[in-house]
Protein backbone atom coordinates (compact mmCIF):
# COMPACT_ATOMS: atom_id res chain seq x y z
CA UNK A 1 0.00 0.00 0.00
CA UNK A 2 2.74 2.41 0.93
CA UNK A 3 4.45 2.00 -2.45
CA UNK A 4 2.63 4.36 -4.78
CA UNK A 5 1.30 6.79 -2.19
CA UNK A 6 3.77 9.30 -3.56
CA UNK A 7 6.05 9.33 -0.58
CA UNK A 8 9.43 8.03 0.45
CA UNK A 9 8.48 4.43 -0.27
CA UNK A 10 7.82 5.27 -3.93
CA UNK A 11 11.15 7.00 -4.16
CA UNK A 12 12.93 4.03 -2.73
CA UNK A 13 11.09 1.78 -5.17
CA UNK A 14 11.94 3.94 -8.17
CA UNK A 15 15.57 4.30 -7.24
CA UNK A 16 16.13 0.72 -6.15
CA UNK A 17 14.33 -0.98 -9.02
CA UNK A 18 13.82 1.20 -12.06
CA UNK A 19 16.78 3.53 -11.96
CA UNK A 20 19.00 0.59 -11.10
CA UNK A 21 17.76 -1.38 -14.11
CA UNK A 22 17.45 1.38 -16.71
CA UNK A 23 20.13 3.83 -15.65
CA UNK A 24 21.04 6.38 -18.36
CA UNK A 25 21.74 10.11 -18.41
CA UNK A 26 18.25 11.08 -19.57
CA UNK A 27 16.51 9.03 -16.87
CA UNK A 28 18.90 10.02 -14.13
CA UNK A 29 17.28 13.37 -13.16
CA UNK A 30 13.98 11.50 -12.56
CA UNK A 31 11.96 14.46 -13.77
CA UNK A 32 8.39 14.46 -15.03
CA UNK A 33 9.72 13.77 -18.51
CA UNK A 34 12.95 13.39 -20.43
CA UNK A 35 14.41 16.10 -22.61
CA UNK A 36 16.89 15.54 -25.39
CA UNK A 37 17.75 18.37 -27.71
CA UNK A 38 14.45 20.03 -28.58
CA UNK A 39 12.39 16.92 -27.88
CA UNK A 40 10.55 16.07 -24.65
CA UNK A 41 9.06 12.65 -23.91
CA UNK A 42 6.92 11.46 -21.05
CA UNK A 43 4.55 8.69 -20.05
CA UNK A 44 2.06 8.19 -17.25
CA UNK A 45 -0.47 5.59 -16.15
CA UNK A 46 -3.89 6.57 -14.80
CA UNK A 47 -5.79 4.53 -12.25
CA UNK A 48 -8.50 6.50 -10.54
CA UNK A 49 -11.60 5.47 -8.65
CA UNK A 50 -14.27 6.61 -9.37
CA UNK A 51 -13.70 6.90 -13.11
CA UNK A 52 -16.09 9.87 -13.30
CA UNK A 53 -15.98 12.68 -10.77
CA UNK A 54 -17.07 16.31 -10.53
CA UNK A 55 -14.95 18.35 -12.92
CA UNK A 56 -13.63 15.47 -14.96
CA UNK A 57 -13.01 11.80 -15.52
CA UNK A 58 -10.14 9.41 -16.13
CA UNK A 59 -10.11 10.50 -19.77
CA UNK A 60 -9.29 14.17 -19.44
CA UNK A 61 -7.03 13.30 -16.50
CA UNK A 62 -5.01 11.03 -18.81
CA UNK A 63 -4.64 13.76 -21.41
CA UNK A 64 -4.04 16.69 -19.07
CA UNK A 65 -1.63 14.76 -16.87
CA UNK A 66 0.67 13.94 -19.75
CA UNK A 67 0.28 17.38 -21.30
CA UNK A 68 1.31 18.82 -17.97
CA UNK A 69 4.33 16.57 -17.62
CA UNK A 70 5.52 17.90 -20.98
CA UNK A 71 4.71 21.46 -19.97
CA UNK A 72 6.77 21.04 -16.79
CA UNK A 73 9.78 20.25 -19.01
CA UNK A 74 9.23 23.63 -20.69
CA UNK A 75 7.97 21.88 -23.82
CA UNK A 76 5.00 22.50 -26.10
CA UNK A 77 2.94 19.28 -26.11
CA UNK A 78 2.44 17.87 -29.62
CA UNK A 79 1.43 14.20 -29.83
CA UNK A 80 0.00 11.67 -27.43
CA UNK A 81 -0.41 7.92 -27.49
CA UNK A 82 -3.07 6.19 -25.44
CA UNK A 83 -3.22 2.63 -24.09
CA UNK A 84 -6.41 1.21 -22.58
CA UNK A 85 -6.68 -1.74 -20.22
CA UNK A 86 -10.37 -2.58 -19.95
CA UNK A 87 -12.11 -4.96 -17.63
CA UNK A 88 -14.22 -7.57 -19.38
CA UNK A 89 -17.78 -6.26 -19.52
CA UNK A 90 -16.86 -2.60 -19.10
CA UNK A 91 -19.85 -0.62 -20.46
CA UNK A 92 -19.30 0.71 -23.98
CA UNK A 93 -21.25 3.82 -23.02
CA UNK A 94 -18.71 4.59 -20.30
CA UNK A 95 -15.86 4.03 -22.73
CA UNK A 96 -17.47 6.44 -25.19
CA UNK A 97 -17.82 8.99 -22.43
CA UNK A 98 -14.15 8.62 -21.56
CA UNK A 99 -12.94 8.86 -25.15
CA UNK A 100 -15.15 11.89 -25.75
CA UNK A 101 -13.61 13.75 -22.85
CA UNK A 102 -10.13 12.67 -23.99
CA UNK A 103 -10.87 14.13 -27.41
CA UNK A 104 -12.14 17.35 -25.90
CA UNK A 105 -9.12 17.63 -23.63
CA UNK A 106 -6.74 16.96 -26.52
CA UNK A 107 -8.45 19.60 -28.58
CA UNK A 108 -8.24 22.11 -25.76
CA UNK A 109 -4.56 21.35 -25.26
CA UNK A 110 -3.78 21.45 -28.96
CA UNK A 111 -2.43 17.90 -29.10
CA UNK A 112 -3.28 14.95 -31.32
CA UNK A 113 -3.74 11.46 -30.02
CA UNK A 114 -1.88 9.71 -32.77
CA UNK A 115 -1.58 6.08 -31.74
CA UNK A 116 -2.89 3.65 -29.17
CA UNK A 117 -3.53 0.14 -27.93
CA UNK A 118 -6.33 -1.73 -26.16
CA UNK A 119 -6.27 -4.84 -24.00
CA UNK A 120 -9.19 -6.52 -22.30
CA UNK A 121 -8.48 -8.33 -19.04
CA UNK A 122 -10.74 -10.72 -17.18
CA UNK A 123 -13.51 -9.68 -14.90
CA UNK A 124 -12.43 -8.40 -11.50
CA UNK A 125 -9.22 -6.86 -12.78
CA UNK A 126 -8.35 -3.31 -13.83
CA UNK A 127 -11.16 -1.61 -11.84
CA UNK A 128 -13.09 -1.07 -15.07
CA UNK A 129 -10.54 0.92 -16.97
CA UNK A 130 -6.89 1.89 -16.78
CA UNK A 131 -5.31 4.29 -19.24
CA UNK A 132 -1.70 4.98 -20.05
CA UNK A 133 -0.66 7.90 -22.17
CA UNK A 134 2.70 8.90 -23.52
CA UNK A 135 3.46 12.29 -24.96
CA UNK A 136 5.94 14.03 -27.21
CA UNK A 137 6.56 17.73 -27.02
CA UNK A 138 8.97 20.17 -28.58
CA UNK A 139 11.10 22.79 -26.94
CA UNK A 140 11.46 26.03 -28.78
CA UNK A 141 13.28 27.63 -25.90
CA UNK A 142 16.62 26.69 -24.59
CA UNK A 143 15.79 27.11 -20.92
CA UNK A 144 16.80 24.08 -18.94
CA UNK A 145 14.48 23.46 -16.05
CA UNK A 146 15.88 21.27 -13.31
CA UNK A 147 14.90 20.20 -9.83
CA UNK A 148 18.55 20.65 -8.91
CA UNK A 149 18.76 24.32 -9.89
CA UNK A 150 16.82 25.89 -6.99
CA UNK A 151 18.97 28.58 -5.40
CA UNK A 152 18.70 30.20 -1.97
CA UNK A 153 16.56 33.31 -2.25
CA UNK A 154 14.31 31.91 -5.00
CA UNK A 155 10.57 32.41 -4.69
CA UNK A 156 8.31 29.37 -4.54
CA UNK A 157 5.06 30.04 -6.38
CA UNK A 158 1.94 27.92 -6.58
CA UNK A 159 -0.29 28.57 -9.58
CA UNK A 160 -3.61 28.25 -7.73
CA UNK A 161 -5.52 26.84 -4.77
CA UNK A 162 -4.29 23.43 -3.76
CA UNK A 163 -5.87 20.09 -2.97
CA UNK A 164 -9.03 20.31 -5.07
CA UNK A 165 -8.52 17.23 -7.21
CA UNK A 166 -7.56 14.90 -4.37
CA UNK A 167 -10.39 15.98 -2.10
CA UNK A 168 -12.89 15.81 -4.96
CA UNK A 169 -11.91 12.22 -5.66
CA UNK A 170 -12.12 11.34 -1.98
CA UNK A 171 -15.61 12.78 -1.68
CA UNK A 172 -16.71 11.38 -5.02
CA UNK A 173 -16.26 7.89 -3.65
CA UNK A 174 -19.55 8.60 -1.93
CA UNK A 175 -18.82 7.15 1.50
CA UNK A 176 -18.69 10.54 3.16
CA UNK A 177 -21.83 12.39 3.99
CA UNK A 178 -20.54 15.71 2.78
CA UNK A 179 -22.29 18.11 0.45
CA UNK A 180 -19.16 20.08 -0.41
CA UNK A 181 -19.13 21.65 -3.85
CA UNK A 182 -15.75 20.48 -4.96
CA UNK A 183 -14.63 19.92 -8.50
CA UNK A 184 -11.35 18.55 -9.74
CA UNK A 185 -8.80 21.11 -10.83
CA UNK A 186 -7.74 18.99 -13.81
CA UNK A 187 -6.52 21.29 -16.56
CA UNK A 188 -3.72 21.60 -19.15
CA UNK A 189 -0.98 23.90 -17.93
CA UNK A 190 1.15 24.32 -21.10
CA UNK A 191 -0.31 27.72 -21.86
CA UNK A 192 0.43 28.92 -18.37
CA UNK A 193 4.00 27.63 -18.47
CA UNK A 194 4.60 29.23 -21.87
CA UNK A 195 3.48 32.61 -20.59
CA UNK A 196 5.53 32.25 -17.46
CA UNK A 197 8.68 31.31 -19.35
CA UNK A 198 8.40 34.23 -21.73
CA UNK A 199 7.54 36.67 -18.96
CA UNK A 200 10.66 35.72 -17.07
CA UNK A 201 13.10 36.82 -19.72
CA UNK A 202 12.43 34.30 -22.47
CA UNK A 203 15.12 31.93 -23.60
CA UNK A 204 18.17 32.18 -21.42
CA UNK A 205 20.10 29.13 -22.44
CA UNK A 206 22.32 28.86 -25.46
CA UNK A 207 20.45 27.99 -28.68
CA UNK A 208 22.01 24.55 -28.83
CA UNK A 209 21.24 23.83 -25.24
CA UNK A 210 24.01 24.62 -22.80
CA UNK A 211 22.48 23.79 -19.38
CA UNK A 212 22.11 27.39 -18.30
CA UNK A 213 19.43 27.95 -15.69
CA UNK A 214 17.04 30.73 -16.44
CA UNK A 215 15.10 32.88 -14.05
CA UNK A 216 12.54 30.08 -13.93
CA UNK A 217 14.50 27.39 -12.16
CA UNK A 218 12.00 24.66 -12.15
CA UNK A 219 8.36 23.77 -12.85
CA UNK A 220 6.53 20.84 -11.27
CA UNK A 221 2.91 19.81 -11.30
CA UNK A 222 1.83 18.94 -7.78
CA UNK A 223 0.15 15.62 -8.48
CA UNK A 224 0.59 12.57 -6.27
CA UNK A 225 1.71 13.49 -2.78
CA UNK A 226 0.74 17.12 -3.37
CA UNK A 227 2.77 20.28 -2.91
CA UNK A 228 4.62 18.85 0.12
CA UNK A 229 6.07 15.97 -1.86
CA UNK A 230 7.13 18.13 -4.80
CA UNK A 231 8.84 20.64 -2.53
CA UNK A 232 10.66 17.90 -0.67
CA UNK A 233 11.98 16.59 -3.97
CA UNK A 234 13.20 20.04 -4.93
CA UNK A 235 14.78 20.71 -1.54
CA UNK A 236 16.61 17.40 -1.69
CA UNK A 237 17.70 17.70 -5.32
CA UNK A 238 18.98 21.27 -4.87
CA UNK A 239 20.17 20.86 -1.26
CA UNK A 240 18.32 23.97 -0.20
CA UNK A 241 15.76 24.62 2.49
CA UNK A 242 12.28 25.67 1.49
CA UNK A 243 10.40 27.71 4.06
CA UNK A 244 6.66 28.11 3.53
CA UNK A 245 4.40 30.68 5.13
CA UNK A 246 1.21 28.95 6.20
CA UNK A 247 -0.89 32.07 5.77
CA UNK A 248 -0.02 32.53 2.10
CA UNK A 249 -0.96 29.09 0.80
CA UNK A 250 -4.16 29.38 -1.28
CA UNK A 251 -6.79 26.85 -0.26
CA UNK A 252 -10.49 27.12 -1.08
CA UNK A 253 -12.77 27.06 1.97
CA UNK A 254 -14.56 23.90 0.80
CA UNK A 255 -11.23 22.10 0.44
CA UNK A 256 -10.11 23.34 3.81
CA UNK A 257 -13.36 22.18 5.39
CA UNK A 258 -13.11 18.72 3.85
CA UNK A 259 -9.46 18.46 4.90
CA UNK A 260 -10.37 19.41 8.45
CA UNK A 261 -13.16 16.88 8.58
CA UNK A 262 -10.87 14.16 7.33
CA UNK A 263 -7.86 15.30 9.33
CA UNK A 264 -5.84 15.55 6.13
CA UNK A 265 -3.09 18.09 5.53
CA UNK A 266 -3.91 19.84 2.22
CA UNK A 267 -0.19 20.15 1.50
CA UNK A 268 -0.18 16.42 0.78
CA UNK A 269 -3.32 16.32 -1.38
CA UNK A 270 -2.97 15.79 -5.14
CA UNK A 271 -3.70 18.50 -7.68
CA UNK A 272 -4.10 17.85 -11.45
CA UNK A 273 -4.05 21.41 -12.68
CA UNK A 274 -1.71 23.22 -10.31
CA UNK A 275 1.99 23.65 -10.51
CA UNK A 276 4.87 24.82 -8.43
CA UNK A 277 7.16 27.33 -10.10
CA UNK A 278 10.47 28.22 -8.52
CA UNK A 279 11.65 31.58 -9.81
CA UNK A 280 14.70 33.72 -9.13
CA UNK A 281 13.86 36.35 -6.54
CA UNK A 282 14.21 39.27 -8.95
CA UNK A 283 11.65 37.77 -11.35
CA UNK A 284 9.07 36.73 -8.77
CA UNK A 285 6.75 39.67 -9.34
CA UNK A 286 6.90 39.35 -13.11
CA UNK A 287 6.19 35.64 -12.79
CA UNK A 288 3.25 36.25 -10.51
CA UNK A 289 1.80 38.85 -12.88
CA UNK A 290 2.15 36.51 -15.84
CA UNK A 291 0.44 33.67 -13.99
CA UNK A 292 -2.38 35.80 -12.64
CA UNK A 293 -3.13 37.13 -16.12
CA UNK A 294 -4.19 33.59 -17.11
CA UNK A 295 -7.48 32.10 -15.84
CA UNK A 296 -5.70 28.99 -14.54
CA UNK A 297 -3.29 31.14 -12.54
CA UNK A 298 -5.67 33.78 -11.23
CA UNK A 299 -5.01 32.82 -7.62
CA UNK A 300 -1.27 32.21 -7.97
CA UNK A 301 0.71 33.12 -4.88
CA UNK A 302 4.23 33.17 -3.53
CA UNK A 303 4.07 30.62 -0.73
CA UNK A 304 7.67 30.47 0.36
CA UNK A 305 11.34 30.95 -0.30
CA UNK A 306 14.34 28.77 -0.78
CA UNK A 307 17.16 29.20 1.69
CA UNK A 308 20.46 27.56 2.52
CA UNK A 309 19.71 26.18 5.96
CA UNK A 310 18.73 23.45 6.69
CA UNK A 311 19.53 21.85 3.34
CA UNK A 312 17.02 19.30 2.12
CA UNK A 313 14.18 20.22 4.49
CA UNK A 314 10.82 21.85 3.88
CA UNK A 315 9.58 23.94 6.80
CA UNK A 316 6.25 25.63 7.44
CA UNK A 317 6.03 28.83 9.46
CA UNK A 318 2.75 28.40 11.29
CA UNK A 319 0.41 31.21 12.19
CA UNK A 320 1.59 30.79 15.81
CA UNK A 321 5.18 31.56 14.89
CA UNK A 322 6.34 27.96 15.15
CA UNK A 323 8.28 26.13 12.47
CA UNK A 324 6.87 22.75 11.54
CA UNK A 325 8.75 20.21 9.45
CA UNK A 326 6.83 19.29 6.29
CA UNK A 327 8.30 15.89 5.79
CA UNK A 328 8.23 13.45 2.94
CA UNK A 329 5.73 10.82 4.04
CA UNK A 330 6.87 7.22 4.10
CA UNK A 331 3.38 5.88 3.52
CA UNK A 332 -0.13 6.81 4.52
CA UNK A 333 -0.13 9.46 7.21
CA UNK A 334 -0.73 8.00 10.66
CA UNK A 335 -1.11 10.11 13.78
CA UNK A 336 2.18 10.56 15.57
CA UNK A 337 0.58 11.65 18.78
CA UNK A 338 0.99 9.39 21.76
Amino acid sequence: LAHGAGGKATHTLIEAVFLEAFRNPLLEPLGDGAVTGTLALTTDAYVVRPLFFPGGDIGDLAVNGTVNDLAMCGATPRYLSAGFILEEGFPIADLRRITASMAAAARAAGVWIVTGDTKVVENGKADGCYITTAGVGTLDRGATLSAASVTPGDAVIVSGPIGEHGMTIMLARGELDLEAHLTSDTAPLHDLTARLLSACGGPTGGPTGGPISGAVRCLRDATRGGVATVLNELATASQVSIVLDENTIPIRPDVRGACELLGIDPLYVACEGRMIAVVAAGHADAALDALRAHPLGADAAIIGRAGDDPPGLVLLKTSFGGTRIVDLLVGDPLPRIC
Partner: peptide
Protein backbone atom coordinates in the same frame (compact mmCIF):
# COMPACT_ATOMS: atom_id res chain seq x y z
CA UNK B 1 -23.78 19.55 12.70
CA UNK B 2 -20.71 17.35 12.27
CA UNK B 3 -21.78 14.12 13.96
CA UNK B 4 -23.03 12.18 10.94
CA UNK B 5 -20.14 13.32 8.80
CA UNK B 6 -17.57 12.15 11.30
CA UNK B 7 -19.46 8.89 11.64
CA UNK B 8 -19.28 8.54 7.85
CA UNK B 9 -15.54 9.30 7.87
CA UNK B 10 -15.07 6.50 10.38
CA UNK B 11 -17.16 4.08 8.31
CA UNK B 12 -15.37 4.99 5.08
CA UNK B 13 -12.03 4.21 6.62
CA UNK B 14 -10.54 7.32 4.99
CA UNK B 15 -7.76 8.53 7.28
CA UNK B 16 -9.39 6.59 10.10
CA UNK B 17 -6.83 4.12 11.38
CA UNK B 18 -7.96 1.51 13.86
CA UNK B 19 -6.81 1.98 17.41
CA UNK B 20 -6.99 -0.04 20.61
CA UNK B 21 -5.97 3.02 22.62
CA UNK B 22 -7.13 3.46 26.20
CA UNK B 23 -6.20 7.16 25.97
Amino acid sequence: SQWDRVSAVARSGVNSPLTSSVG
